[in-house]
Nucleic acid binder design. Structure first.
Lengths: 354, 354
DNA sequence: CATTGTTATGTAAACGTTTACAAAATTTTC
DNA sequence: GAAAATTTTGTAAACGTTTACATAACAATG
């Protein structure tokens, strides 16, 4: 039989109310009474029944984290960020990644069950109508990571994709003298992907470089997708001299293709990525990429959610953007190093003549 | 106000018992009654209170997964394996990875709280006395992944490390003609690490190759650890002609060091790893390594745990070993290709003369 | 048509807490 | 030393289910 406060109450010759108070050291319990109760609880190896407490408190201290797929370190880091934050506040996290047998919608609906989780963090770079509907109708607070800013009814956390893409492309131009910069975009439904493209486009435009549509190809954020996209770029009659891959995985795909075609990074073509995954530091040459503070994304989301839970349920939705930084590897040449007079001047002209 | 079965009962003019029965379609409920109840529940958008159900059922349908650190894809894959399996059985998983503010012990103790989780999967390549104690005294079933076989009071799942290490080292000898094979061991407290060493040693012995203690160095399963260990090996007066790194991360560390010293893999030295992480296929040359079915580890653990939960609480503990395979990359040379007569003969002698 | 058997529904306890309110015990105040 | 104020403890309801047992409704049987 399991030890309950009832049992402790009997042995301590007090009521269960007093036991409860002593255990939660609440109110005023006479010190001697409290000590006695505590020592009895200790002796009996009492463990509170979380379920019973949840029932009466209408709170589980569990939050749900829904994500598209648990794969790669990107998500792992976010999970860690959330977990570390909520742990300090006495919460736990249930992770539900969608897979063959479970969709995001299903996970969401499941979590919304009353008294299952106190709140939900949803990582969804693309949000469909159904999901939006569920979020809107949710009884528990929801925080969205990386969603379109359209979802402004709830708190959101997102990467400053525009800033990241803009700055690395601008960096390619200003520091390395590149002008023939291609982009491998992410999936078109993906919000991060869109914003990164916009940053790319803006950087070119601000530097008076026209966008060459041949150098804008779409990938799917996978290694294989990067390979395919890169091989399209490498076999063009007019090749770019640098590739901005919208994430590091695709950048690594570029590495593979470029190497197998007998070219070399960065001598023949520069490659930059986005995300700063572990392996961008491991590969040779090290990848120049945009650092995304992944764990911070999770932490911020957790912070917003917990703030909602602590009463602020009807304050205005907050929208947090986490900024990025550039990690400089050796994956792009300084074109000026090879050519005394900057090559980009004539090239730029030739582009303008197109 | 939240909708409860009480409310539904009132509207349907039945008792809460009947509502409960209809909702769980149990027993015999008159079809018309059932339909009426179901439609009312639907209309009111009734959501059952999980906490209340948990309390009376004495079951949460949540399992806990405790792991040393949530990092790298290895753990991620295991998490996925567990999640997919338990999801089909209607369970959820709470992941607790230890970090600065939380130890394995703490996570365990936390989970053991009554009515918090129905069971625990513990991933612990090294188990100390305190943890063993907690496992032994646990009221809920525990399954250990990768633990020492000493922990035989509970179900365990582990990688067949010996087989994996033996077969890849044997492969190096038999297929590539290597004999001067070094090993970078994992941390000495780590069980997987130990077993891999034993596989290495046995393969050498079975091939009548003496173990050269200079070629046995310790790493810590990290990239950096691999680098340090590798540089120790590469600066020896008598260098090995192949390195068996006890995991892929360290093997990649070897790549870095070998490359920066101006040598090349596999021409100057062969490298093999263990784990078959994603990046072993991405690097050039692709790493020859031991494939570990990570997701299967998780699935097996989940299966064992759920079997326990479904009644078989007092059957004998089961010990599952998942087998490994060899993934062949280009990270080792066939020494015979470079030298008509097998080089290993004289080398072998020279070792024997030491 | 009374008796038995079956099926459908209701009553109430149980799960183990927390907590509002009441009551008792103790201390303070005049 | 009684009245008032304060502290400590107890009583009982509440949280929202499930389910054993009781009972009502109905069909089948002789």
């Amino acid at each position: 039989m399991n030890i309950t406060i009832k049992e402790i109450a009997k042995r301590a010759n007090v009521s269960i109310a007093t036991v409860s108070r002593a255990l939660n050291n609440l109110d005023n319990v006479r010190p001697e009474t409290k000590d006695s109760i505590l020592s009895i609880a200790e002796k009996l190896n009492y463990i509170p029944n979380v379920g019973a407490r949840n029932l009466v408190m209408q709170k589980t201290n569990i939050i749900g984290f829904v994500l598209p797929e648990i794969q790669g370190e990107f998500y792992t880091e976010i999970i860690r960020g959330i977990d570390e934050y909520v742990y300090n506040a006495g919460y736990h996290m249930i992770v539900a990644s969608s897979h063959s047998q479970r969709s995001i919608v299903e996970s969401l609906v499941n979590f919304m069950k009353r008294s299952f989780v106190d709140g939900v963090i949803l990582m969804a770079p693309s949000i469909n109508e159904r999901v939006k509907e569920i979020i809107t109708g949710s009884t528990v607070p929801v925080v969205v990571i990386s969603g379109k800013s359209e979802v402004d009814i709830v708190d959101t956390v997102s990467i400053d994709n525009f800033q990241g893409a803009y700055s690395i492309v601008n960096f390619l131009i200003k520091n390395y003298g590149h002008t023939k910069i291609a982009i491998i975009k992410g999936p078109s439904t993906n919000n991060d992907s869109l914003e990164r493209y916009e940053g790319y486009a803006a950087a070119l435009t601000d530097n008076k470089i026209k966008i060459n549509e041949n150098w804008v190809v779409e990938g799917d954020f996978t290694l294989r997708g990067g390979e395919i996209a890169c091989s399209r770029l490498m076999t063009l009659l007019e090749r770019p001299d640098a590739i901005f891959a919208s994430n590091d995985m695709m950048a690594l795909g570029c590495y593979k293709v470029i190497n197998s075609l007998g070219y070399s990074v960065p001598k023949d073509i520069g490659v930059v990525g986005f995300d700063h995954i572990l392996f961008s530091d491991v590969v040779l040459p090290r990848l120049t990429t945009v650092h995304v503070p992944k764990s911070e994304l999770g932490q911020e989301a957790a912070r917003l959610l917990l703030e909602r839970l602590d009463g602020g349920r009807d304050k205005e939705p907050e929208h947090v953007k986490v900024s990025t930084g550039i990690i400089i590897g050796e994956s792009c040449n300084n074109l000026n190093d090879y050519n005394h007079k900057p090559r980009y001047q004539p090239i730029n002209q030739s582009i303008n003549q197109l």
